[in-house]
Amino acid sequence: MFEARLVQSSILKKVLEAIKDLLNEATFDCSDSGIQLQAMDNSHVSLVSMNLRSDGFDKYRCDRNISMGMNLGSMTKILKCAANEDVVTMKAQDNADTVTFVFESPNQEKVSDYEMKLMNLDQEHLGIPETEYACVVRLPAGEFARICRDLSQFGESVVISCTKEGVKFSSAGDIGSANIKLAQTSNVDKEELAVTVEMQEPVTLTFASRYLNSFTKATSLSNVVQLSMSPDVPLVVEYRIGEIGHIRYYLAPKIED
């Protein structure tokens, strides 16, 4: 028996919003420790890694590990049926081929349940080594979304350069070029408004702007986004999901041909 209850169904809606741009379907791996998801987009350029810890749920029970392959389009349709203030419970029997979503209004006067067929998905898990990154940048998530949106008007690629002074985002194309420099915040009153850079060595990497834009669909999950970079390895873009977990996007860089 698997059962996970979340008082804020809006978190689940936001998680889905954050992954459905990149993935059509995904396997939710449920265990005693929580719900994990790892999936690459079709072109194998980016990867989504999400973790929701069991202790972050209002009730959590998972007697046996189960992997639930879900069509994210179908899941979106179902979660649209939940009001933001509803309490959501996901339920599945061991070895089930369906999952049930139960939505309860705060006053318990309306209770709906939606059963969704599960899919058998080929799981292609990648081993991601623990990495010490040369540069770790934290900035307001809304600012990052704005930068990605603004620069994607100029070219298909965004160059991210990180030095100890700050971080620079650049793009160039037919209409011209654009550079956005963010300096490290000198005095931090509010952490969620700060730009911070932890740097071992400077890094410059080039990425496809359309993936960066897709990652920013997670902006509503967190005030802060963290970018981790090292020379010649994939970028990690991380958003925390409240007190319950995180979503990380890995993006392979563009390399010299």
């Binding site: 194998h44 350029v45 081993g127 392979a252 563009k254």
Partner: peptide, 14 residues
């Protein structure tokens, strides 16, 4: 000229 790498260039299947 740059080309898009894939994650398989960096990570192994587990």
């Amino acid at each position: 000229k740059t080309k898009q790498a894939t994650l398989m260039n960096f990570f192994k299947k587990s």
